[in-house]
Design a protein around this nucleic acid. Sequence first.
DNA 1: ATGTATCGAAACGAGCCGTTTCGTTCAAGT
DNA 2: ACTTGAACGAAACGGCTCGTTTCGATACAT
Lengths: 207, 207
Amino acid sequence: MEITSADTDDGVRRSIGARRNPASQEAILDAAEAVLRESGIGGFSIEAVARRARAGKPTIYRWWPNRTALMLDVYQRFKNARGFPDTGTLRGDLVALLENHLLGFWKDSLCGVVYRAIIAEAQSDPDAAAVLFAYQAERKQATAVIVDRAKARGEVAETVDGALIVDMIVSFAWHQLLIGRVDEAMTAIDGVVDGVLMGCAGYQRKE
Amino acid sequence: MEITSADTDDGVRRSIGARRNPASQEAILDAAEAVLRESGIGGFSIEAVARRARAGKPTIYRWWPNRTALMLDVYQRFKNARGFPDTGTLRGDLVALLENHLLGFWKDSLCGVVYRAIIAEAQSDPDAAAVLFAYQAERKQATAVIVDRAKARGEVAETVDGALIVDMIVSFAWHQLLIGRVDEAMTAIDGVVDGVLMGCAGYQRKE
DNA sequence: ATGTATCGAAACGAGCCGTTTCGTTCAAGT
DNA sequence: ACTTGAACGAAACGGCTCGTTTCGATACAT
């Protein structure tokens, strides 16, 4: 742990007045990440994070409403580095989406582990579900512009359901994450995108 | 709750000797199912099940090593009695797959709730993960015959990746289940299947 | 008749929950 | 200069669930 200007000589962080102490915020997020990395989701408790960060539980509860919000914050610390894809083609954008923001992103960092934990948490905790689903819906909506741009370029018909396209890509990525096959799925990205764009080769509808 | 021959007059089950009491086993599974139905995954604890079943906790721990094993046993009781789809067309088979074995099946019964819980549990418990992933892989492989039949009928090219088609359908269903949108997803089944079969309408690849 | 494994009930210590209280520290407002 | 008020860590609270242990009663197995 770094000794910042907000730390005292004895290594104990105290209040810096009537405002949030960024040193505590960082120490808590660092501790949360470390606990997740070392003990997994099973060992991830507010108590454990507070101990690790040498912070008080009320300090955590003051800034994060629950466990999940804290996990999401850990997740989002990783997120900001990569830019949103705009390769000029729909196919390129969707491949980049999987490679940079979904599978490839989860593969490289602790992020995949954290996201799995968040999804699992949301299956039993309504608060977690609300936070995750709101985040998820916002991300999907923002991603749908990929299809809008493709429509403007005349790449696809105006009638195409952009939300559905994004849903299919995200669904595939989620599923592979949740069954622990992110690495293998990376090699299937081209096929998935081609499938979403062109369907099954030689499809002839029969009655 | 049924009063069986193994129940005493006052409704209290007692030992029937040095062997497992089937009345207790059934009462515990019934109670586990009822707790899941009424309180959801969050309320599913060994304590709650024991209370509901009027059974002792040691009786549960004697026969099930942990929560997950008990959930898996509940899930096994729901094992799908529905026939495997063979409608004569690929489109019909995929729609039936979603309606009878995935979304529709999860929607009608408690099965969806249990399946969510098992998926969530598998994210932290390696034992649960092993069981789930084995089951999952076997189901997918069995389902791929849908595409094989379509190839034999000449509906799609021989080069089509059947495993990928199944993966896309299953992924969509999983995702909708995990974000609690099974009901809404039921109305999107046609669009999803059309997308998998035909891709994006009017797609023109640009370079 | 004896041995033994089961049953439900009850209690255990441990751990985490989310909250409250407390004394300290310091920025902002008066 | 002084007061107000918020944030800080520490500690303790009551409540819950955990998984285990103990207990007396039961009834099959030998």
